[in-house]
């Protein structure tokens, strides 16, 4: 498993660059990860990221967009504005959780 240095911390990542150790994540790292893909985090982004991390911890898997919208309370349209083009992958990358696996 490769490691990389993000925001001054050495963290484990997979071959694509997604973090693989939930507990190595912190908010500084999130800001750096977001910066890597051209996103500046606002309060709305943080709401999504925090939901993703809490839901992942409770459910054991990364929520799909529909769940982020219905349970996390951020409408689909807004998710596409906050994390353009590939919201599900981008938000999980920043939140330090695996890419979602489901179909819907």
């Amino acid at each position: 498993m490769p490691t990389t240095t993000i925001a001054g911390a050495e963290v484990q990542v997979d071959e694509e660059g997604f973090m693989t150790a939930y507990d190595e994540w912190n908010e500084e790292i999130a800001k750096a990860l977001a910066g890597n893909i051209g996103i500046e985090l606002t309060d709305d982004h943080w709401q999504v990221i925090k939901f993703l991390r809490e839901d992942y911890q409770e459910q054991g898997e990364t929520p799909m967009l529909r769940r982020v919208s219905n349970v996390g309370g951020v409408p689909t349209k807004q998710l596409f504005q906050l994390f353009p083009k590939k919201p599900a992958k981008k938000m999980s990358y920043i939140a330090g959780v695996p890419k979602p696996q489901g179909c819907v």
Binding site: G17, K85, K86, K90
Partner: peptide, 13 residues
């Protein structure tokens, strides 16, 4: 080195 996933934003056609 820093790993950044390729989200393919450039190849949007």
């Amino acid at each position: 080195m820093t790993f950044v996933p390729d989200f393919g934003d450039d190849d949007s056609d």
